[in-house]
Design a protein around this nucleic acid. Structure first.
Lengths: 207, 207
DNA sequence: CAACTAACGCGACCTGTGTCGCATTAGTAT
DNA sequence: ATACTAATGCGACACAGGTCGCGTTAGTTG
């Protein structure tokens, strides 16, 4: 009776066929999405690749948007390398740089770009994306918390707000304005966020 | 032979029936989008409302995504109130506040929110959105240019970059993370952008 | 005013997404 | 081992989204 992390969904039988099907289908979804893009994404192709019947997918996920949302939910669970150099400035820079690399490197960018782009195309996906970023931001906020303990940042700075500020401009360019993303932009975003935090702009509101 | 601004599309007959149809259809699209939302948006409903045949829409716009893109293109052409108080800090704050109000006021938010949200759901719409923001940013950059002339900001600051930084966090919250938007966030974004600009972070690269 | 052209109206048709009832199989409990 | 339950497999089907060829109309040209 392994405490499998995948058995998150309450009520379903853990570790059974359902779990296998879920993994297969989500994997197939990601593969199809990466290869063909969202516009060419079809439920039938996913089913064929996963070796699963169409009706099963519609029953469990409701459609393409449900698949994207679930894929994103799985991604959100996976841990993420958080820098810890002992220097906040460096940590935040690395954080921004990691985002930059993820969405710029030709070998890495395709899947994450397609997945987030796809999530923006439905209300369900958007909700999943929201949860995804909440998880990521909370994980990364660790960097700020540590810095506050070291006295490198004001004590009442809002950790999540700083992380958000350091990465938001990159996502903004990528998915909203569609402007190109360069190294300078990543550096600027991180530097500006740190500057604002030190100026007290990200202080949590007093109770 | 009026120099109609709508006759932008080269090759088409200006001011004729085509122009009327375009206006009717785009208006109907916006109305349907506002009332029913993107997920319930159907080409047939738009045609019915505009008094136009289905085939016409598919021929000229190619589908829903084309309609959204065209609606956005029309919006991009419309001028936009740019603050001019004589004080950059105030101008930038007003700029951010205007975005905040547009997407927060119950009477104003529905249409812009739905339109931008819809634009994110197709490649065509995303391209139109990119052009839309380019236009907006360039218009608003005027605020920064004037400030530089007045000596309120460093001479080599990139005007568009400052405008972008002041508004990006708001769009990021609205359309990517789905977090709530409050007045403080708008204020913070503007203040942080100004801070960064004065620190030289937004300087245009030397040639 | 008359000829001409581009765009629109019309309706039939095709494609494929999503649904439904029932048979079958995997996994669980006794 | 045997009985039971939930999920999947299966194929037929309904239906909306989107296409096509042709006739008609609005707007332009001389």
């Amino acid at each position: 009776m392994p405490h499998d992390a995948k058995a998150a969904k309450a009520g379903t039988r853990p570790g059974g066929r359902s779990a296998r099907v879920r993994t297969d289908v989500v994997t197939a979804t990601l593969a199809e999405l990466t290869e063909k893009g969202y516009d060419q994404l079809t439920v039938e192709a996913i089913c064929h690749r996963a070796g699963v019947h169409k009706a099963t997918v519609y029953r469990r996920w409701g459609g393409v948007d449900g698949l994207i949302a679930d894929a994103l939910a799985l991604s959100a669970d996976q841990p993420w390398p958080i820098p810890d150099t002992g220097n906040v400035d460096e940590d935040i820079q690395l954080l921004a740089r990691e985002v930059y690399t993820t969405f710029t490197d030709p070998d890495l960018r395709t899947t994450p770009t397609a997945l987030i782009g796809a999530a923006l195309r439905s209300d369900l996906g958007a909700a999943a994306l929201s949860a995804f970023f909440t998880a990521r931001h909370q994980q990364a906020a660790e960097v700020v918390t540590r810095a506050v303990e070291r006295g490198q940042l004001p004590a009442d700075v809002d950790p999540v707000e700083l992380v958000r500020a350091a990465t938001a401009p990159l996502y903004h360019r990528l998915f909203i304005t569609g402007e190109p993303l360069d190294e300078r932009a990543a550096h600027r975003a991180a530097a500006a966020a740190l500057l604002a935090a030190r100026a007290g702009l990200f202080d949590a509101p007093a109770p």
